[in-house]
Design a protein around this nucleic acid. Structure first.
Lengths: 153, 153
DNA sequence: TTTTCAATGGATTTGCAAGTCCATTAATCA
DNA sequence: TGATTAATGGACTTGCAAATCCATTGAAAA
């Protein structure tokens, strides 16, 4: 539910890359081992992420993949978009005939509510947030009231 | 994204049944025409909804399907559950190794946030809400405050 | 009764996402 | 320079959700 296998793999690979030292590139094979994603399939996904400008790649010795911008500047929405799975808050998943805001299907309002919250999530979450969250957890006690408050929602 | 085709069909069919007069049963074929769902595939889905107790069915003349309880008593979660697609707020979609609340993967907190909002939505939305929403819209002016308040629960 | 209508259930096919394989290209090292 | 390493891109295979088909069951109408 929610995401296709491919999207899930992409998010996992990007998260792994964000978690690794930025000075050296990670090999597709290494990433495959660390994330458990089938290596050849992962290659394909990484290629698309390169094409979309989210990753940089290098061949040969010391080659591999690395983020092309800081983790804070890569939203989940950008990753979805790179794989043609953009989150569009106006799309009605139920495609009941031609359905739009003017002439909504019966399910439209209910679905809109859900769809909006998914899109908001994808827009507002970045790879940087993952690292911040982890640092917070590692810091032992629940760091910062504001973060806990946000996490709850 | 979000739902499989099968789940989408089930929600559409249930919504259509909720919208129809409750005194006479709707035929699988009629439902197929009204919702645009392939008729034989729809049959299968309806069978599962019957097995789960959400629908009642009758054979032969004047046979067909009808809701087994009032629309207000059928949550989206119940429909998902009938098709083995329960919304479980603790499941980590990213399945990164063995991941749980104690030993969360890097993506876990971010995903939890999303997953929780999807589950809340499925739990708190009923077929009755769809009808109420429609009546609200039909009543002309945006009956905002009262409608929104009711729809929330 | 018999006929007709409609659900039931299983077997089968289709189509596409997921996964594999391999030959090519390009970078670095010895 | 040649050998090695790793990404690239396309062709191909697999597996499963989606869709189809058909023979059976059961209920109501004629």
């Amino acid at each position: 539910m929610i995401f296709s296998q491919t999207i899930e793999y992409a998010l996992r690979a990007m998260a792994q890359l964000a978690a690794m030292s930025a000075d050296e590139a990670a090999t597709s094979k290494d990433l495959s081992v660390e994330t458990g994603i089938p290596s050849h399939y992962l290659s394909k996904i990484l290629r698309r992420l390169v094409a979309a400008g989210l990753l940089e790649s290098g061949k040969g010795h010391h080659g591999g993949f690395r983020l092309s911008r800081p983790p804070e500047a890569i939203s989940f929405q950008a990753i979805l978009s790179a794989l043609d799975a953009d989150c569009d808050p106006n799309r009605c998943a139920f495609g009941w005939g031609k359905c739009n805001a003017q002439n909504p299907c019966l399910l439209h309002p209910a679905f809109s509510k859900l769809n909006t919250s998914v899109c908001d999530w994808a827009d507002s979450t970045t790879l940087g947030d993952l690292l911040a969250e982890r640092r917070g957890a590692k810091a032992g006690t629940h760091a910062k009231a504001p973060k806990a408050a946000r996490a709850r929602r």
